[in-house]
C-alpha cells in the first residue's frame, strides 16, 4: 500500500511562501492499494490537486472516506475534477449523525449560497453512505471506522490491505483526535483510550498533532492533540511508524521544523525509534510495508521542498 499526502494542514488552508515545504492545503491522503486501485481519505483542499492529476485518466470508481464534515475535510470536494466527469462513480463514506443523513449534511456546503452548484447537479454519479458499524471491504482493503474524540461526529479509519504479497499492511488514519482530553493517556487502560483499537500495531499511524505542548492549554477541548499526547498515544498503541498531521495554520515551515525536532527528542524519551516518526508534508509519498519487528526500521520518506 502506498500513501501520498495531498494536504496536511488543519483548520483552514494556509498558503504562502513560508508554508511551502509542509504545504498549505487541508487534509487529504491518497492511498494506492495492492490492486492499483485508489482510495481517498478526506476531501480538504488537497483533493483539488489530486483531481487535477486525474483529469487525463479519470478512474471509473472512486471511494472517498471522510472523517468528519468540518470544512477543512470537505472544502475541496466541489473542486475535485472527477466530480464533473459523467463517466465517474464516486462513493462518499462518512460519519452518521442523528440529525440528518450524510448527503443532507454535505449538501449544506454544496448548495447556495456557499456553492454555485448543488449535489444533484454534479455530472458524476455520486452516492453517500453513512459508515456501517461493522468492517467492510473496498477492493483488497478491509476498512473499519470508529468514532473518536473530537468535536461533533468524527471517525478514525483502520485500513488493512490484504492483497499485498508481503502480507497485510495496515494504515490507521486519525486526523482529528484529542484522546488525552481529561484522561491520563500514559496510564489509562487500553479499553478506555479513544482510537486504541483502530491504531493498535498499525504499520503507519497518521495522527493529529496540531499543537505544541505549550500551546495546548489554550486549546483544551478543541478536539486536537498536543505533541506529547500524539506521541504517547502512538507508543501506547505500538504504531510501527508515526506521521504527525493536521498542522496548525499558524505554524510556518521553520516552526514545524522546530516542532519536529522537539517531537523526535520526546519520541526517543518515550522509547521510540527516531527513524519511525515524521511530520506530514504535502507531496510526501510513503510505501507502507508490513513491519518485521526484527528488521531495521526504514526511515520514512521526507517530502521534497516545493515551490
Amino acid at each position: 500500500m502506498k500513501a501520498k499526502v495531498w494536504g496536511a494542514r488543519g483548520s483552514v488552508p494556509a498558503p504562502g511562501p513560508e508554508m511551502n515545504r509542509y504545504g498549505g492545503n487541508t487534509s487529504c491522503v491518497e492511498l494506492e492499494l495492492s490492486d492499483s486501485s485508489m482510495l481517498i481519505i478526506d476531501a480538504g483542499t488537497g483533493i483539488r490537486g489530486l483531481g487535477v492529476g486525474l483529469v487525463k485518466k479519470v478512474p471509473k470508481v472512486i471511494n472517498i472516506l471522510l472523517t468528519h464534515l468540518h470544512l477543512d475535510h470537505i472544502q475541496g470536494l466541489m473542486f475535485f475534477a472527477p466530480c464533473f466527469n459523467a463517466d465517474t462513480t464516486i462513493t462518499i463514506w462518512g460519519p452518521s449523525s442523528p440529525e440528518a443523513s450524510l448527503e443532507e449534511r454535505i449538501a449544506r456546503y454544496i448548495s447556495a449560497p456557499l456553492s454555485p452548484v448543488e449535489v444533484r447537479e454534479l455530472p458524476c454519479e455520486v452516492s453517500f453512505i453513512d459508515t456501517p458499524a461493522t468492517e467492510w471491504e473496498i477492493g483488497p482493503a478491509k476498512i473499519r471506522a470508529e468514532s473518536v474524540t473530537h468535536r461533533g461526529p468524527t471517525l478514525g479509519y483502520r485500513i488493512t490491505d490484504t492483497g499485498a504479497g508481503e502480507g497485510p499492511t495496515t494504515l490507521a488514519y486519525i486526523s482529528d483526535h484529542e484522546p488525552g482530553l481529561g484522561a491520563p493517556l500514559e496510564k489509562l487502560e487500553p479499553e478506555w483510550i479513544s482510537g486504541f483499537d483502530l491504531a493498535c500495531k498499525a504499520d503507519l499511524l497518521i495522527h493529529d498533532c496540531q499543537y505544541t505542548d505549550e500551546e495546548y492549554p489554550n486549546h483544551v477541548g478543541w478536539g486536537h492533540s498536543p505533541v506529547t499526547d500524539a506521541l504517547t498515544f502512538a507508543r501506547r498503541v505500538e504504531a510501527r511508524r508515526l506521521l504527525l498531521f493536521h498542522h496548525d495554520p499558524l505554524h510556518a515551515d521553520s516552526f514545524l521544523d522546530d516542532m519536529y525536532g522537539a517531537a523526535v527528542e520526546r519520541w526517543i524519551d518515550l522509547g521510540g525509534d527516531p527513524g519511525t516518526i515524521d511530520m506530514a508534508a504535502e507531496g510526501q509519498e510513503l510505501v507502507i510495508r508490513p513491519t518485521d519487528d526484527a528488521a531495521p526500521k526504514a526511515a520514512p520518506a521526507r517530502a521534497a521542498p516545493q515551490g
Partner: peptide, 12 residues
C-alpha cells in the same frame, strides 16, 4: 509507562 499495546482481550 507501559508502552505495550495490549491485545484486545477487553473490547474497547
Amino acid at each position: 509507562m507501559s508502552t505495550e499495546a495490549q491485545s484486545t482481550t477487553k473490547p474497547q
